[in-house]
Design a protein around this nucleic acid. Structure first.
Length: 289
DNA sequence: CAAGATTCCTGGTGGC
DNA sequence: TGCCACCAGGAATCTT
C-alpha cells in the first residue's frame, strides 16, 4: 500500500463531527477515494435518519462520483447520472473509508461500495444526519440550500455583510452568528470561541455590534475555523477518535465547556449561561459589550 | 418578520 | 454495581 493511501485512510477513518471544520476534514479525507470511482453497491441497513434516506439511493449503483464539494455543513457528491448525493452528518455522523469486508459496527447505517476495493461507510449513533439524492438541476433552488448565508471562509463574508445582516436583530449576538441565514458553519463551539477571541460579550444585542467590532468578529471567525480545519477538526465526547484519544483541538478551546475554570488569558472564572437554548461560555474579564 | 420553543436520537453522566 | 432521569446538540419547523 502506498504511503499516500495510508495517509488518506487515516484521515478518512476517524472522523468526528458536527462543526464545519469536521465536515471539511471529512471532505478532504474521502475525496481521493471517491472521486472518479464507480459505485458497485449501495447497502442501506437503516433508512430512518433525521429524514428518511432517499429511496433513490440504490439507483446510484453503476454511476461514478465526479466531485465532492461542501456547502455549509452539507457534503455534495455529484454522481454521473445527473444527481447529487447530499450528506449531512448531523451531530454524531461520520463517513469513513473502509474495506468492504470490515465488520459492521453498531450504528453503521449505510455502505457505498466503490470499484477498486473500498467502501464509504456512514455511521451515526444519534441519527440526526441525512442522506438525500437530489437532481443536480434542483440543487441551486433546493430548500435546504437556497436560504443559506455566505461561507465564513470566503471573501463575501465581510464585516459589512455581518453588520447589515444583524441590523434588525435584537437577539444575543452569539445566537445571531449561529443563524445560517447570517453566515453558515458557525456552530455552538465556534460561536463562543470566536466571540472570546474577538473580545466581545456573547449577550450583546446583535444590532448593537459596531462596525469595528464586526471587523474583529469576522476576523476571529475566519481564524478559528481555519485553525481548526488545519488541526483536522475538533473532537469532543462521542467524537473521540477511534483509538479513544480525545481530539487535539480541545486543548485549544478558551471558553467552550470550561465553566468555572480559569480563563487562559486573564485568570477570571469562565461564565456560562443558556442563550437560544444552547450552552454559552465567555470570560467576563476579556469580553465586553 | 423576528424570536422563542419544540422536535428528532442515543450515549455519557451524576445521583442514589 | 445497577438503575434511571437528565442533558447535549444541528437545524428544520412550529408557535407566539
Amino acid at each position: 500500500m502506498q504511503p499516500l493511501l495510508v495517509l488518506g485512510l487515516l484521515l478518512a477513518s476517524f472522523l468526528p463531527m458536527p462543526e464545519l471544520p469536521e465536515v471539511e476534514t471529512t471532505r478532504l479525507g474521502i475525496s481521493p477515494h471517491v472521486i472518479g470511482r464507480k459505485i458497485s453497491e449501495v447497502i442501506v441497513r437503516r433508512w430512518d435518519l433525521r429524514w428518511p434516506v432517499s429511496p433513490e439511493l440504490p439507483e446510484l449503483e453503476g454511476q461514478t462520483f465526479l466531485s465532492v464539494e461542501r456547502r455549509s455543513k452539507y457534503l455534495l457528491m455529484e454522481a454521473s447520472g445527473g444527481r447529487m448525493l447530499m450528506v449531512h452528518l448531523g451531530m454524531s455522523g461520520s463517513l469513513r473509508v473502509v474495506s468492504p469486508g470490515e465488520e459492521w459496527r453498531k450504528h453503521d447505517h449505510i455502505g457505498i461500495t466503490l470499484k477498486g476495493g473500498m467502501q464509504l461507510r456512514y455511521h451515526d449513533p444519534r441519527r440526526f444526519g441525512m442522506m438525500l439524492v437530489v437532481p443536480i438541476s434542483e440543487i441551486p433552488k433546493h430548500k435546504l440550500l437556497v436560504n443559506l448565508g455566505p461561507e465564513p471562509l470566503e471573501e463575501n463574508f465581510t464585516a459589512q455583510h455581518l453588520h447589515m445582516a444583524l441590523r434588525n436583530k435584537t437577539i444575543a449576538l452569539k445566537v445571531a452568528v449561529m443563524d445560517a441565514k447570517v453566515v453558515v458553519g458557525v456552530g455552538n463551539i465556534y460561536a463562543s470561541e470566536s466571540l472570546f477571541r474577538a473580545g466581545i460579550h456573547p449577550a450583546l444585542p446583535a444590532n448593537k455590534l459596531t462596525k469595528p467590532k464586526a471587523e474583529k468578529l469576522v476576523a476571529a471567525i475566519k481564524e478559528v475555523l481555519a485553525e481548526s480545519i488545519a488541526q483536522g477538526g475538533t473532537t469532543l465526547r462521542d467524537f473521540l477518535n477511534s483509538d479513544g484519544q480525545p481530539g487535539y483541538f480541545k486543548q485549544r478551546l478558551f471558553v467552550y465547556g470550561r465553566k468555572g475554570e480559569a480563563c487562559r488569558v486573564c485568570g477570571a472564572e469562565i461564565s456560562h449561561s443558556v442563550m437560544g437554548q444552547r450552552a454559552t461560555f465567555w470570560c467576563a474579564g476579556c469580553q465586553r459589550r
